[in-house]
Simulated scan of single mutants.
Amino acid sequence: MNVSTEHRIDVVDVTERVEAELPAVDHGLCTVFVEHTTAALSINEAEPHLVDDIEAFVAELSASDGWKHDALDGNADSHLRSSLFGRSVCVPIRDGKLALGTWQSVLLIECDGPRTRSLSVTATPSVE
């Protein structure tokens, strides 16, 4: 699944897209993995003010220059920021749907946009 971002630091709710890509599993575990080193995933509330707060928080996590990797491609801060969140999330599957809490959403956190990001969605059935 591909997700386009619009800003250098951007938070995109991908919950519905993940659920649409979910393999046919009644009960199990869904893993969502972002196939990039300057983007991350998190489970949190997708409320617009909180999304703005997450973007501001991510922007403040690291100085944007002065890193050794910047000599290569100028985005060390993006690698550092995304490393704090991680590249994957796991969500239980119940009755063929993501079993998220009332206010939980799967959020893609872009740290080096705008870009098009690839997400992998896999499902592991429960052993009964």
Score class of each variant (00 low, 15 high):
99 A>P: 03
115 R>W: 13
101 G>N: 05
93 I>H: 03
49 H>W: 12
40 A>E: 08
64 S>I: 15
77 D>Y: 09
49 H>Q: 13
102 T>I: 10
48 P>C: 08
108 L>G: 00
43 I>F: 03
87 R>K: 15
79 H>V: 15
61 L>R: 01
46 A>G: 13
89 V>R: 01
74 G>C: 03
51 V>M: 05
60 E>R: 05
59 A>D: 15
100 L>Y: 07
37 T>H: 02
65 D>V: 11
40 A>P: 06
38 T>S: 13
29 L>V: 15
91 V>W: 06
86 G>K: 09
25 V>Y: 07
68 K>H: 12
42 S>V: 13
78 S>Y: 00
67 W>G: 01
83 S>Y: 08
53 D>Y: 04
47 E>Q: 14
64 S>C: 14
73 D>Q: 02
108 L>W: 00
28 G>A: 04
30 C>P: 04
34 V>T: 07
110 E>Q: 03
79 H>N: 09
90 C>V: 09
94 R>N: 05
94 R>W: 05
44 N>D: 08
56 A>L: 13
75 N>E: 11
113 G>A: 03
48 P>K: 06
26 D>C: 09
70 D>P: 00
42 S>C: 12
78 S>N: 00
86 G>I: 15
101 G>S: 06
102 T>F: 09
37 T>L: 10
90 C>G: 05
105 S>I: 07
97 K>G: 08
112 D>N: 02
86 G>D: 13
96 G>P: 04
32 V>K: 01
33 F>C: 12
45 E>D: 15
106 V>T: 11
113 G>R: 02
114 P>W: 02
